[in-house]
Write a protein that binds this DNA or RNA. Structure first.
Lengths: 352, 352
DNA sequence: GTCAGGTCTGTAAACGATTACAAGAACGAT
DNA sequence: ATCGTTCTTGTAATCGTTTACAGACCTGAC
């Protein structure tokens, strides 16, 4: 025998389906009615069907959080923050993963129209017109945890990476480190471009030139290691020194000789990847080279030495994004807001 | 104006709703019909409502994966594996998090009856009769990625931690390390008890006695650090030496003096936490003390030194669990299977 | 005693899809 | 020309809820 429905409960309780529905939803009813219905519910083990309910009321009381890579610890911080806010508001949070391709993100946003959830927080790596279009046209509210053009007219909570870069560069400066290299993620991503520009500006503002810049294949640990060998091998390939070229020779020699005394990475995973390659070359962090990551994720305190990292406010971004989403669900006519949260620096042992 | 429904499409195309539904589902129709419907769908931007569809057909084509802690990297491995299998089978995967309490897990399983998804993979930390009961009575198929009594009669994919412990202990032995301490997670969890027993058996089988055993508050990094100080402070509190008591004195002195030359941790997060406390006491890994983790998560290769870890097959467990779930969705009458996947050891730099 | 007003409950119509069934069209065979 | 098949299409019932509406009942005031 299959699941009892509201009709079964009604029959068992000897009342109408409407009455059952009413007591289940806490609408006024006599004590006796409540009593009878609850007994029947208990007896049959009745659980209301969320599909039918949401079809009727037009809401699922579920919210979706879409992240690009579940392996990136920055998302766990964000997820925890989002979870806290939405569950306090009585929603279930479900997480899906999109992968790095923008087409998958577009498909996801379009798919929301199927009514899986009442809202979506998406943190896209790559953004194109299609994605923005799909977000604007989406039937359910979407807030972007990330940077999209203000012309897009969507709710947005983003980090201030340029400011974060400034914090990183200036921290290194106060420690006397000026020979700074930058390991970025793919520059065709939103955070990638933002950080590239932020780094360039921060260096310029302090009258510095980058020792080297390398672009990792993506924002992962493995890519960080590869970037590390590229950076440290001193080969020309991929080393886009801004005027100063790293030369060949004994691996790490230039760095030790003063050619490189700090590296800033675009996120913690990349930073940790680079640290491994430094270690492989007997370069010690922070004595030989200081390392700064970004995101201040759990990995930053877990790695060794603990990583100085720019806290781009992922927890707060998650919280604010969730709040924005809830607000928009309440009132879809409000004008889109663009919140930017300010970075702080979490100083740990990877810088002197 | 709101979302177009199938009725709107039918009207726009000048055909019946049944015809629209048929072409959308690829049932036979004339070319002209297909043509007209597709044009109307295109024009209106129609997307079928998943709620209505699933209400009628009784399936959502969604599967849920429930994990206790999104911050535990073992779950990302598992998640990736599950995702791969289920998406290949045409299902969407959504992830939810339960937290460490068994009551939340029970609530989640019970809640599945609401029809959120067609199946559930759950990896519970704590298991009680209520949970097993809720799984057995659940209206949708559930497979447990973890260990439940075979009497429970549910599909299960579990690791072989005793065997894993044996691998760890014997690896240490071949390296000449016999003064082994064990840092476990909470012993009131399923993996906690399994590993405690596995460790005890493995030690006994090799004629060894544990230098110390400490029980961390949970399976997290922070708890690992706390366990580390407990272990290394040499205080009596909480140090459940099996016969041999760690004594006071200069922190770490006993270890350096040979009192402790290896520690096995119940998972990678704990291991990394302990490594931090070792480092804080100037003990070097692996020279002074070797460290072995369990799970062989991404963290194991990211941490420094890279962590020798018992691979309990989380990827394979995820894959098999997903396959079991799909099989049961296909045929709910099959007798429950209990799969156990065998461990291997990933040797890295944290052991000599 | 009647009537207005207020509760409480039941009937039935949605929500947006799928699908059993029937009806109509087309076609070849007789 | 008629009949039986087959193929296509439309009508309407259905999935399990919620909720507008109306009816039944009770209460108190006149």
């Amino acid at each position: 025998m299959s699941r009892p429905t509201i009709a079964g409960v009604a029959r068992a309780a000897g009342v109408s389906v409407a009455s059952v529905s009413r007591v289940l939803n806490g609408l006024p009813a006599t004590e006796e009615m409540v009593e009878r219905v609850q007994r029947a519910v208990e007896e049959l083990g009745y659980v209301p069907d969320a599909r039918a309910r949401s079809l009727k009321v037009g809401r699922t009381f579920q919210l979706t959080l879409a992240v690009a890579d579940v392996g990136n610890p920055v998302y766990v911080t964000m997820m925890r923050a989002v979870e806290e806010v939405v569950s306090a508001a009585g929603y279930r949070l479900v997480v899906t993963t999109t992968g790095p391709d923008v087409v998958d993100e577009v498909a996801l946003v379009r798919g929301m129209a199927r009514g899986y959830a009442d809202g979506l927080v998406i943190s896209p790596l790559r953004v194109d017109d299609d994605l923005i279009k799909s977000i604007r046209e989406c039937d359910v509210p979407v807030v972007v945890a990330g940077n999209v053009p203000s012309s897009a007219g969507v709710d947005t909570v983003r980090a201030n990476s340029p400011k974060g870069m400034l914090l990183a560069v200036e921290h290194l400066l106060t420690k006397g480190r000026k020979r700074i290299a930058f390991v970025n993620g793919p520059v065709d991503t939103v955070p990638g471009t933002a950080r590239a520009k932020g780094f360039a500006d921060a260096m310029k503002a302090n009258g510095l030139r980058a020792v080297a810049e390398v672009e990792a294949g993506d924002f992962t640990f493995a890519a960080g290691r590869e970037a590390g060998v590229e950076l440290l091998s001193g080969l020309d390939i991929g080393v886009r020194g801004s005027g100063v070229e790293a030369r060949g020779g004994r691996p790490g020699a230039e760095a030790r000789g003063g050619r490189l005394d700090a590296v800033i990475a675009a996120n913690d995973l990349l930073a940790v990847g680079v640290m491994h390659e430094l270690a492989a070359r007997q370069l010690v962090v922070p004595d030989d080279v200081a390392v700064i990551g970004m995101d201040d994720s759990e990995l930053a305190e877990q790695c060794f030495p603990p990583l100085t990292s720019v806290n781009l406010g992922s927890a707060e971004r998650g919280r604010r994004a969730a709040e924005l989403l809830l607000a928009r669900i309440d009132d879809d006519t409000r004008t889109p807001r663009r919140i930017v949260v300010q970075p702080t620096l979490s100083v740990r042992k990877s810088t002197p």
